[in-house]
Design a binder for these strands. Structure first.
Length: 251
DNA sequence: TAGGCCATCTGGTCCT
DNA sequence: AGGACCAGATGGCCTA
């Protein structure tokens, strides 16, 4: 999507950068109103940035120029061309990274739409992590239940218990229904709807009897998130921000 | 206005 | 040697 257009706009950026470099303006550099900005506006309707090529860092440029001059007898123009080339690669790399981030946002269970603010990168990553953990635990729970009911009394019966009737049983279908990411909807939060969907299958299977699963007997997964290593744990600020963004997304 | 988020440039390091 | 990856620096836009 944007990478193509962004890539197409790279020469403009480089040209703007080259102009800035030649004229050595103060820091303002308003000339960079690149087409990237327009593309950016089309793709991300929430952020209206006016990204411009930053004014060159003269000392750094001089240092790199010296470096390249030492490496090979390059003229000033060759050095500039090389710098533009490297900048373009880095821009493309970051654009690709952003595309991947957008792809991740698309499969995340939060409201999407032109009037909904996009999740920040950090929020996307944190939400994705929690989502994956929750789906894993749900899947384990399903497997455990199936093993309990139809596993034939294999030993232990833990989350990874025996699985002899795999594929044929309706409960397994319910379990496997959890595997693909659910379609994003405004009402879903952390995939809770997918759990409920599969869970309703189980309810019908139990035909009115009280469901014995831990989903019924324990608080919902999102209220008791799986423990995270300290370095991965969501901080209070991250949580508050996530909460704020989720609230915004559900509007 | 401060803080958050972002894109871009840049130099360094590692890999092929 | 060239490319990929990374982190720091910088400045712009937006929102509370």
């Amino acid at each position: 999507m944007s990478s193509d257009s962004s890539r197409a706009s790279s020469p403009d950026m480089d040209a703007a950068y080259a102009r800035a470099r030649d004229s050595r303006p103060p820091v303002s550099s308003t000339q960079g109103a690149c087409t990237t900005t327009a593309d950016h506006h089309q793709q991300h309707t929430h952020h209206h940035h006016q990204h411009q090529a930053r004014a060159p860092l003269t000392p750094g440029s001089a240092a790199s120029a010296a470096k390249y001059r030492l490496k090979k007898q390059a003229s000033e123009e060759e050095i500039q061309q090389l710098r533009l080339k490297i900048n373009g690669r880095e821009r493309k790399r970051m654009h690709d990274l952003n595309l991947a981030m957008d792809g991740l946002r698309e499969v995340m269970p939060y409201a999407h739409g032109p009037s909904v603010r996009k999740l920040s990168k950090i929020a996307t990553l944190l939400l994705a992590r929690n989502y994956i953990l929750m789906l894993s635990s749900s899947l384990d729970e399903m497997k455990r239940l199936v093993a309990e009911l139809y596993g034939g009394g294999g030993g232990g019966g833990g989350a990874h218990g025996p699985f002899h009737c795999a594929g044929a049983h309706p409960l397994l279908a319910a379990a496997s229904a959890l595997a693909p990411p659910p379609p994003a909807s405004a009402a879903t939060a952390l995939g809770l709807s997918s759990i409920r969907a599969a869970h309703s299958l189980m309810k019908s299977h139990w035909a009115g009897l009280p469901c014995p699963c831990t989903i019924c007997q324990t608080p919902p997964p999102h209220s008791a998130p799986p423990p995270a290593p300290p370095h991965l744990a969501i901080t209070s600020t991250g949580l508050s921000r996530l909460a704020a963004e989720s609230k915004e997304a559900l509007k």
